[in-house]
Design a protein around this nucleic acid. Structure first.
Lengths: 232, 232
DNA sequence: CGCCCTTCTTGAACGTGTTCAACTACCGAT
DNA sequence: ATCGGTAGTTGAACACGTTCAAGAAGGGCG
């Protein structure tokens, strides 16, 4: 939080132009080694050596080994958005759109299941800037929430007016739940996670539809009030 | 997993009689320092020094620094059970019983909020034996699930026959969710978590009651089938 | 060209969790 | 009492993430 001189890029980021190349080199090398050996087995010394730089240089661009994970998150988010596009173009109904986007997220993550799982623990630490709930990762998080916003806006689903503004974030939360399950999923090819998505989506779909029923209005209200209370 | 000679205690535990004293000394010292300084700030060297033993001795009893956390879990579980007893004796209705037991759990954890939060990340790592889902912590986990079984069996609630056997584990899962929220709860005194409990319990109560309705039977079935599929 | 300032780079050094070969204390059997 | 083996204990050594003082590279300006 020291004051920075004027920069062309966002504050706090030391990357202007000269070092951008090195930054990417280190990042790509790290990602490769993470995939090859796993997170814990990849040492900062190994990353530096493979990238042909000094250890300290990696720390000039990334505050810690954990911060390299954030790069992985950001990268995954972008890939997720891209993989979801065909689904959003193709499907119109809420259920298939949601299922498609959830499956796309797992598709993107699947090649990294082995090592991604081991470092999702870091994301669970509340104090860590890597937590999906933290301010520091609000960028990727908002992008993800927006993606679920698109699932909703582009669909033909009729949603309770009060629920609608909350729903994208709730769907994102459900996605976090899916990921939590996926991380622990030891079934071959993580087929169980696929079953979770296919089983849960119709339930969510039905629940969203039911929220408009007059009889259930009080319950819907109650739930939404609770959520509003609990949000930050 | 080397074969052990006959022991008076459970297998795999090097504590017979002579070392039990040292074991407890190290454990208690560690717990005290964790509370005083936090988990990350407490070094194994500090624990050893304060306990008056060599560093390696701590590793004779506890495989790693993380394993000391498991002691904390076990201890908390026992305290939770004890704190829940008055509630189970006093309350008869399902809702108050559940709320009481959940509050009791948070009561027990509250003094450790500062440091407990930081190491719950370790619990989130799937490969870690410290995960609440792991085989290694099946003992405390089962004890916790049984506690929610008592919430149910001692209550006057009428529960769908198919749901009943699954419910204790589901309630435990909900409790894990409460803890996850609590860990991230930055509100003073974690009052938000209390609101979560008070807000969610009536919903769960209503949901459980509704599960017996004929109209909702197909949904109940669908949910239970999904859960059965996903369990292990 | 020479100067200065910022950006970038270096690698030795620090503190950490963890390991391990050596050692000591205890206890039952001879 | 002596021996032998297991349980318990030691602290130096190792590999790791991280820090930091020192320097190199680059570029704008006289």
């Amino acid at each position: 939080m020291t004051e920075q001189p004027a920069q062309t890029t966002t504050a706090g980021d030391p990357a202007t132009a000269r070092g951008e190349q090195t930054r990417q080199l280190i990042r790509d090398t790290a990602m490769r080694l993470f995939r090859e050996r796993g997170y814990a087995q990849t040492t900062m010394r190994a990353i530096a050596q493979e990238a042909g730089v000094a250890v300290g240089n990696a720390y000039y661009y990334f505050g810690s080994k954990d911060h390299l994970i954030q790069e992985f998150y950001a990268q995954s988010q972008v890939e997720h958005r891209a993989a979801a596009q065909p689904v959003l173009d193709r499907e119109e109904a809420f259920g298939p759109r949601l299922a498609g986007v959830l499956h796309a997220g797992i598709d993107v993550l699947t090649p990294s299941h082995g090592f991604a799982a081991t470092f999702f623990k870091t994301a669970a630490e509340p104090t860590s800037p890597l937590s999906p709930f933290s301010a520091e990762s609000s960028g990727p998080r908002q992008a993800a929430i927006d993606l679920f916003g698109e699932v909703l806006t582009g669909s033909t689903a009729k949603v309770d007016a009060e629920l609608r503004p909350q729903l994208p974030e709730l769907l994102w939360l459900a996605y976090m739940g899916v990921i939590l399950y996926w991380v622990h999923d030891r079934s071959p090819g993580q087929t169980k996670t696929r079953q979770l998505i296919d089983g849960a989506v119709p339930l969510i779909d039905r629940l969203v539809a039911l929220s408009r029923l007059r009889v259930l209005r009080p319950v819907t209200r109650q739930v939404l009030d609770l959520i509003r209370t609990l949000r930050h």
